[in-house]
């Protein structure tokens, strides 16, 4: 690597670190804990953690099979399917929210079916999880598909020639092999779900303890109490850093 690369790389790092540092300088440290421990803040944090965890589980359940299909099969139009699956990565979340509204909303595509089943999605915590899963799923798929391709099929082929059934191969060979990729995908999905704002506010609404996640609470607090908004923003950053750091730490300590 040529040494001049360090300069733009340092600039890039500063570009990310500086705003976060600026945020930290604006925190009213004397009131920090009072600001982040108010009832509404606690409710928002707890809701965010719960919904993000649920979305991550959904991302694993749906994303792992999707990544397998994309990495281990080839069919006509596969690259087209891949682009569609990755679309939520580049779509403005508000657009995602509007699309979800017209799918799961009362008047939406599946609205009547959902109504018949006696389910209520609009303005419920379920809607938050749906919105978060929608935006986070591609992170899982991208991360795991890359790992699957890098890992290759050698061990799977060997296991199969030794008589293992496909499900056994998946369980005993493939999944253990790509576990780091799966973990990385799960972390990214969790982090993305935690930060989700646009699709949630468009699709799920905003009510304390039900649909008002931490990012929505921050946006609302900005109206009347900018100090609380800054404190909560820092809290969100800390939670995100912890989640990413924990998994990186766990992975680097593994052989």
């Amino acid at each position: 690597m040529p040494r001049w690369v360090l300069l733009p790389a340092a600039l890039g790092a500063a570009f990310i670190v500086l705003p976060l540092a600026a945020l930290a300088t604006r925190v009213e440290w004397t009131h920090f804990f009072a600001l982040i421990s108010s009832d509404s803040s606690q409710a928002a944090l707890w809701l965010s953690l719960r919904t993000s965890a649920a979305s991550t589980v959904l991302c694993v359940v749906l994303g792992v099979p999707m990544a397998l299909v994309l990495a281990r099969t080839s069919f006509r139009g596969q690259s087209f399917v891949r682009s569609i699956v990755l679309l939520p990565l580049v779509l403005p979340p508000v657009v995602g929210g509007i699309a979800l509204l017209y799918t799961f909303g009362r008047k939406g595509l599946l609205g009547e079916t959902i109504d018949v089943l006696g389910l209520q999605i609009a303005f419920s915590t379920t809607a938050v999880v749906i919105a978060q899963t929608f935006v986070a799923l591609p992170f899982m798929v991208v991360s795991l598909e890359g790992t699957l391709r890098t890992a290759g099929e050698r061990y799977e082929v060997v296991a199969a020639t030794l008589g293992a059934r496909p499900t056994t191969v998946l369980r005993r060979v493939t999944l253990p092999l790509v576990l780091p990729g799966l973990a990385a995908g799960a972390v990214l999905s969790f982090a993305r779900a935690l930060g989700e704002f646009g699709a949630t506010i468009t699709f799920a609404g905003s009510l304390e303890g039900v649909t008002r996640t931490l990012p929505l609470e921050i946006y609302l607090q900005r109206e009347t109490d900018p100090d609380a908004a800054v404190a909560l923003s820092l809290l969100l950053v800390v939670v995100a850093v912890l989640v990413i750091g924990l998994v990186r730490g766990a992975r680097s300590s593994a052989p």
């Binding site: 990214l188 982090a191 993305r192 704002f197 946006y219 950053v237 995100a240």
Partner: peptide, 10 residues
């Protein structure tokens, strides 16, 4: 990095 950036989505 991309994920961190999207955390500040609005």
């Amino acid at each position: 990095v991309a994920a961190l950036l999207t955390l500040a989505g609005c």
